[in-house]
Each structure stands twice: as C-alpha cells, then as structure tokens.
Design a protein around this nucleic acid. Structure first.
Lengths: 344, 344
DNA sequence: GCGAAAACTCAAAGCGCTTTGGACGACTAA
DNA sequence: TTAGTCGTCCAAAGCGCTTTGAGTTTTCGC
C-alpha cells in the first residue's frame, strides 16, 4: 500500500492524504480522521526512502563505533549509551544507523556517511585527546555531538561529558583523607581524553594533599577484566604496595578485586578501592550499600543528553555550540575504609 | 555533488555515469575509469535514499533490541554480536538500522519497519520459547534470521544457534565424572529459549549419569553479576551446598566467584564452576589456561554467520529455510577439579 | 443576495537515482 | 555494397513521497 493507492481508496488526492497524515492545517478534521483511520486499517506508513528523498531529511542519526586494529574491542558501555539515546530518538522520530569500522577507514567512513546523505547527524564516541574527527566533521558540515571532549582540539563543537577530572580528584582526596598515602590508578587507555582527564584529576588530588605520584602506581590500558586483575596484582605484589586503588570502570574493578582476594586481602579493610561506575545494566553496583565505593554517572543518561543536544543541533546547525558537563556522584560503598597503617 | 552534476562535469549522461559506477558492461573501460576518477575526486557517493527508492532495496538490515518493561536491560552480548555481523554487512554493502523498543511495542515496531520499507531483512535476537515474532515476520514476509531458536514455534524459519543443550549436558557429565553429585545451575531467564535448552541439557546430563535434580539447585534470572552472586551465595550457604556450579555466562560466573571467595572457598578446589563463555571482548577468559573452565562459543562468530545467512536469504527469499548449529568447546580452565568429598 | 475571505482539495513538479528501450556509429561478414 | 552485430551512449519514465501554486466550494458579513 502506498500513498497513491491509499488516496485512491479514499477518493482523495495524494496531496490531501499527505497533508492529513502530516498534520497540516489545510485539511478538515473530518477528512483527517478518515485518512488516519484508513492508514491505520491498511497499516500504511510512508516509505522512509521516499520521504527522506522528498524532504531532504533522513531522520536518522549515525553512530560509528571504531575498532582499533590492535584491540578490536567493543566498548560494553555502548549498549547502555545507545539505549538512553534511543529513547530520545524515537520520541522525535529518528532512528539509528550503526556502523562498525576499523580505525584505518574511520575518516573515510564519516565522509561517506555525509556524501551518501545517509544521516542527519552523528555522535562521536570515545574521543581521543587530539581527535581528528572533530575537525573533519566541522569541515564536512555534518551536525555532530561528541560524547566526551577532545582537550587538544581548538575548534568549538558540541559535547556532553562527565566531569572526570573533578570526580577523580575528589575520589583521590577522599582516599587521602581516609589516611591512604599510596594510591594506585588503574586507568583506561590514556590516548582517550576521558582517561587523560581522570589521571589529571588523580594527580591534582594527590598534589592538593601534598603527595607526590609514582609511575609504578599508574597504569593505562584497555579496560578489560583481566587488565584490572593483572594491574592490581602487580601493584599489590610490589615491595611498596598501594593501600588504595582507583579503578577506571566496574569491569576493571572486578578484575582488581579478583587479584586482591586471590592474595587473601579483604577489600575495604586491607585495601580500599573506588571505581568509576557507568551504571551498566549488567553490573548494578548494589543499591543502598554498593559493593564498590564508586564515582557514579549514568552512561544511559549521557546517551539521552547527547541525543537531545544533537537533535536541537540539527534543527539549528548555526547556533553557537552547546555543551554540558555532568557530575559524577561519589557513592560510599563497602570497598573503602581507613588506611590500616597510616603512618607506615 | 549529485549524479547529474557529475555527469555534466564529465560531458556524459547520467545514465552512462550510473552504469559506469555500478559496473555495467555497456560502458567502455576508458569511460569507466574517467567516471570513477571523477567520482573519487569529488568524493561523490550516490544518495542512499534515492538509490534505495529507485532499486527497491534499502541495503540495510534491521536489528531490534527489546527492553523488557520489567528489566530494561541491554544484553552486553549484543555489542560483540553486532561487531561480527557488521563485518559481513559492510563487505556486502549493507548497513545497520538499530532500534530499541519496549516489549509492548515490539510487534508494532516490526510491522512499521516493514511498512516503512526501511530494511531488507531483520535479525531476531533473544527468542523466547514461543516467540510470536517468528509467525509475525513470516506473515509480513520480511526476510529474517533468528539468533537462537524458538522451540515451541511450529513454523519453519532460518536460524543460527549454539548447541546449548549438548554443551550443558556435556559440562554436567564432565562434572559428574569428576565426582560431583550436587551441581547447581545458575541459569538465564528460562522464558528465553537458549536458557530452557541449557536446563534441558543439564537435566539430561544428570539423568544420563543416574542422578536426580533438585529445585534448590536451579535458578533462573536475568544474567547480571549480582544475580550470579546472590544465587551462588544462597546455594553454597544452604545445608546441602553444591560442590559444583554451572553458570550461564562469564558475568554471572564472576558474581558467583565473588560469593565463593567471600565465603572463603577456593574455586577449582573447594568448589568447581563451569561457565558459558561468549568470548566477550571485555571478558577474555584467559588464553592457554583460562580462569574459568568454560563452554566457549564466540558470539561474534555467531553474528557473522547470522549476517551471511540473512544476506543469502534476502537474495533468495523463497528457498527452503537454512539453519546452522554451532558447537561450543569445553575449555578446561582453573575453576574445576575433582569433588572433595565424592562420597559425602 | 453578493462579493470576499476562508476552507478545502488537487495537479504537477521535483527529490536523485536506476533502468528500459532505443539511437548512432563503427565494425564485421556475406 | 548491404545487412547485421557490437560497442557506446542517451532520453525519459518511474521509484513514493512532499510541496508549491492554484482551483473549487463553502461560509460569512453586510
């Protein structure tokens, strides 16, 4: 069933039917009802391709997830982010085009997306410190919003980010205030902007409390469970182990906990840990008394914010860029406690 | 730059340019080169909407992920599945339309996808035992492939599934052979077909070895880390605890391990565990000697197979349905060992 | 009861592509 | 030479929608 057939079956012209369907005022309420009912009865929906071609709007948002040729990892955060974003999209009639590309073809794939006119806007995930995608997209002229920031990029652009620096600084100071002097950081890949900011916050927290940092207590890698395990094991197995650890994600923290328990230490007593918690659906970090003391910031909510911003950006591409900084809550859980040997 | 402009700039007709671009034989090699070079130089790509409208093919595959109104969980498996599928899609010129819908609007959303002519085919995720989507899609006439099966559905359809029943039976028998008599099953939601099959396999394994089952040793729920923890804690805290556990996923297994270690038990010595391992990128379960003895089956590979099958299905929608059963390997890791008190 | 405004409806053009059905030379075979 | 065959290319129709510009009918004020 297409528009023409529907119009014929109603004894109306395609024009009128289209107007009735799209809520134009030039059609009487009676006619509109009749059209709407008939459309419903025939399960008629305008062909998206034709609509997009005629209107020039694809009503589609592109999400490109990049696989590093070295790691080939899919960020588990993506699933929750997209769930949040999709809520907003569907309320506004948008849908999602997903592409998975290798880092080598990344730039080309953005160009292609624009040239093919497949999407109205793009969400940039996991920006690196000096991410070339931002200049690229600005040049192409495709509306976009960055989830995160790219500190070394001069251009202005829309972004939604968590206050990673502030959060990690706060967590660090909190641990110091509990008497911890040696605090390990098990960070994500520090090419990524958010990880760099977290380290900055960690360093700022230490120096605000008059402590110096130590290379052996800082690691950076892809945030897998086994990385968390290996990094924690190495730290706590050293001659001068940390009494507290800052973990970049719940997944990393779970690996670290494994190392801690394997060594016979008790989390929250022998050693403390604070994890960043994106509130992934499969890793609910407890309710009232979470397992991990955590910097909590819902990535699903971030998805919603990004989607809202992008939609308004598409509507007004020439307005000055928007940005939004989300704060992470420090949720006290069972994984932190006073340092045992504060004087040691 | 559109086709007409490109043609003009070359002094050719749109027809010839289109043919050159699409590899038709009616155009000389010299002209084709000239066209291809010009297209490259101008970064020209055919408008997808127009192409789709003209050809009738959207070159797009729909993936619908359903959020249960009760749980609102996004399966983390999805990210890896889509990565595998996307490899195949992009080789064949397809891209991905992702929609996230609540279970209430699920049927309507499939109908809409078909009516809007937005996709050429659909992948059905996480089928329930008696999943209505299969009959629905057959009725609509939209090509689809199910990742998994729906045991109670009579209609024939294309599917790719892991031999869950066989795998769990084998794992159960393996544990029995190690001397375990009380084996717990921490299963996924048993409305889902794969979980039901796993329980079947578990029960078949027990009865093949002459053992009976026990309700207290079988649980079913959404596969989160904390579910794994709670279920395991309850089992091992009972008067007659199991000496071995079968966990439905690595994530669940991590929760179970937490409960085990919290109780001061040593995994692989005091209690054994086998987990199903989808090889999620963020939970690499070791290499040569994995942490968990596991039923290993790559969900990314399943994504590839599903994508291949769907593409061939789209090409030949009236062929008899295809199906493929993948086997899971039983990988020996450090989480299993002989039962301590085989006679107890 | 008349003219003008309001309410309703429509024909046709256009979005950017593919594809059908030729057209036009240049080449081969008889 | 003539007919037939390639090899190249093109004009125009059509995919299903939106939207402009206009036509027709109804309503209303005086």
């Amino acid at each position: 069933m297409n528009l023409k057939e529907l119009a014929q079956s109603l004894g109306l012209s395609p024009t009128t039917v289209s107007r009735a369907l799209n809520g134009y005022p030039e059609v009487s309420e009676a006619t509109r009802r009749r059209v709407l009912d008939a459309a419903d009865a025939h399960n008629y929906r305008p062909d998206t391709r034709a609509t997009a071609l005629a209107t020039g709007r694809a009503m589609r948002i592109g999400h490109v997830i990049t696989l590093s040729s070295r790691h080939e990892m899919v960020n588990p955060v993506f699933a929750d982010f997209i769930t949040g974003a999709s809520e907003v999209y569907s309320q506004n009639g948008y849908d999602i085009a997903l592409s998975v590309v290798s880092d080598a073809e990344e730039a080309a794939s953005y160009r292609a997306l624009a040239a093919k006119r497949a999407v109205d806007g793009i969400v940039v995930h996991a920006p690196r410190i000096d991410d070339p995608r931002i200049d690229l997209l600005n040049e192409i002229g495709l509306p976009f919003v960055v989830h995160g920031r790219a500190s070394a990029v001069a251009a202005s652009y829309c972004w939604v980010d968590v206050n990673n620096r502030g959060a990690f600084r706060r967590a660090t100071e909190f641990l110091v205030d509990l008497g911890h002097r040696r605090i390990g950081l098990i960070n994500g890949l520090e090419q990524l902007d958010f990880a760099m900011r977290r380290r900055d916050g960690y360093l700022a927290g230490l120096s605000a409390r008059g402590l110096s940092h130590e290379a052996a207590l800082m690691t950076s890698d892809e945030m897998t469970e086994s990385y968390g395990y290996l990094a924690a094991r190495r730290m706590i197995g050293s001659d001068t182990p940390p009494t507290a650890i800052l973990a970049a994600s719940i997944i990393v923290a779970m690996g670290a906990r494994r190392a801690i328990e394997e060594r016979g230490l008790r989390l929250g007593r022998d050693i403390s840990m604070i994890a960043h918690d994106d509130e992934l659906s499969y890793f609910d970090n407890g309710g009232v008394e979470p397992n991990f003391t955590a910097l909590r910031s819902s990535v699903r909510d971030a998805g919603r914010r990004v989607a809202e911003m992008l939609i308004s950006r598409i509507a007004a591409p020439d307005d000055p860029p928007l940005s939004e900084l989300l704060e992470a809550d420090l949720m006290l859980g069972r994984s932190t406690g006073p340092a045992l040997h504060a004087e040691a």
